[in-house]
Design a protein around this nucleic acid. Structure first.
Lengths: 151, 151
DNA sequence: ATATATTAGTTTGAATTCAAACCAATTTAT
DNA sequence: ATAAATTGGTTTGAATTCAAACTAATATAT
């Protein structure tokens, strides 16, 4: 096996491990959602999680953060609006924009989800050093830069 | 910010970077698919890619490798069967199993896709050392083990 | 030997996802 | 100033995904 193929193999393996991790995270969150008997999907919680940190952002920002395309984001935000968890507000500075704000109900959900989310990440990172994680992030971000530039 | 929250934050950031990478890989592959004017989806190619290395595996194995649930795998394999790229063969050793084999057409596609897949991973890993990649894989697999054990 | 639990694959229903096309608003180029 | 390009969000269509339920086959427990 040449070096090239070895690297390709590692990249493939990395991609697979990443997919697996994503899958586990999703499953765990689904368990939490069930425990709390909440009628909400993992994908909606994902958006809410970002809004809990900072709301009043436009849809494109949300799409960038959660790595989904515009139409998926519209679909999910429509859903959140329907459940009265967020509201859309026109942006006075740029009429193309819709700013997404949490409603009081949307904020309340944070109490239910914040501790389990933290616990989940703690579980995931048990026995792993901060420095190692930082290196992994840098590596993947480097890969993402490489891929981004060739699109 | 406490250490716990710092780690949770890094885990979140890692998860996002991973999702981003997955998204880029998918987009790149879509470009290749378009270039070759092939009527096939990224998800189907993903399965074929594993079969090119080793066919004659049951569906559950495929599902494990591509990290999808059983029903999604059935759906995609149905699709591949419909396009005459793979065939299902009953497993004499265990009647529950269906073994999935490539057809001659399915094999032919390898020529089209193998070089661009390698090129893609090369692009992704440019400027990245093998040792660093191996460390990242180990780290993510450790995280996956942690998550798996608590499901 | 029989009952129970587990496994592989299928079916069903609904949610999610993306690509493509579109429109209005804004930015950039001429 | 005007034309062209880009951007944010929406709509549409089809593919994909998962959860839940199911059946037949196999493994495990009694």
């Amino acid at each position: 096996m040449t070096t090239t193929h070895h690297v390709a193999e590692l990249a493939r393996e990395l991609s697979r491990s990443l997919t697996e991790m994503r899958s586990y995270l999703r499953r765990h969150m689904q368990c939490k959602i069930k425990e709390h008997q909440l009628d909400i999907s993992f994908e909606l919680v994902e958006i809410l999680a970002y809004l809990w940190r900072k709301d009043g952002v436009n849809q494109q920002e949300i799409a960038d953060i959660i790595i989904k395309d515009k139409s998926s984001t519209t679909y999910l935000i429509d859903n959140l609006v329907k459940r009265d968890l967020v509201k859309r507000v026109e942006d006075g500075n740029d009429r193309r924009n819709k700013l997404i704000y949490l409603t009081p109900e949307g904020r309340l959900l944070q109490e239910k989800f914040y501790p389990p989310v933290i616990a989940l990440f703690e579980t995931a990172t048990q026995g792993i050093q901060v420095a190692a994680m930082e290196k992994a992030i840098l590596l993947i971000n480097k890969m993402n830069d490489n891929l981004k530039q060739s699109l």
